[in-house]
């Protein structure tokens, strides 16, 4: 059984919280849930990160940014990419969801609601501009693999929706 729990040394948390997702700069990689473990072992910090999507081009950058951030605090780091357990949008923290919303990306709904929204069956995704749920799907695929494109029929603004991945 592969644990879905995070194992992160306490003193490393503030450092890792300062590393942001290169594509969504308001979001820390910790709030994104991509850091699965970070442990100081014999003077080297071993960090395991997991991709949101396998093709996520941000992962290489995130790895470099982590190494750099730890280096600035005097740590040598080894970053490893792991695939199991697979990332899920459930790992985005409450603070992360708020940051997404404020940045203009509607946070993921639960799986059933997500399906209804993406199939265009129900208008339930909240517009990040005016808060209306009178919104419609424009495209299941948006500016990056993790997002879908929506449009608000009240304020007419287009916005991104972070697709549920479970």
């Amino acid at each position: 059984m592969i644990s879905t729990k995070q194992h992160i040394d306490k003193e490393l948390i503030p450092i890792l919280e300062k590393v942001s997702d290169p594509e969504i700069p308001v979001l820390s990689i910790m709030d994104m849930g991509v850091v699965r473990s970070a442990k100081l072992i014999k003077g080297v910090v071993e960090v395991s990160i997991t991709p949101t999507y396998t093709g996520c081009p941000a992962m290489d950058v995130i790895g470099d940014d982590i190494t750099q951030a730890l280096k600035e605090h005097g740590y040598e780091a080894k970053v490893k990419l792991i695939l199991a357990p697979a990332w899920t949008t459930d790992w985005i923290t409450e603070r992360g969801r708020k940051a997404l919303q404020e940045y203009g990306i509607a946070p993921p709904l639960n799986p059933d609601a997500d399906k209804e929204a993406l199939l265009g069956e129900k208008r339930i995704v909240k517009c990040t501009n005016c808060g209306s749920t009178n919104t419609k799907l424009v495209s299941q695929f948006g500016s990056t693999a993790c997002k879908a494109l929506f449009k608000c029929d009240d304020c007419q603004e287009p916005f991104d929706y972070f697709k549920c991945l479970k």
Binding site: P51, Y53, T54, G55, C56, F141, G142, A145
Partner: peptide
């Protein structure tokens, strides 16, 4: 996007 997913899997 689908292409990118497939490349990720390929990697």
């Amino acid at each position: 996007n689908i292409s990118l997913d497939l490349f990720g899997q390929t990697r």
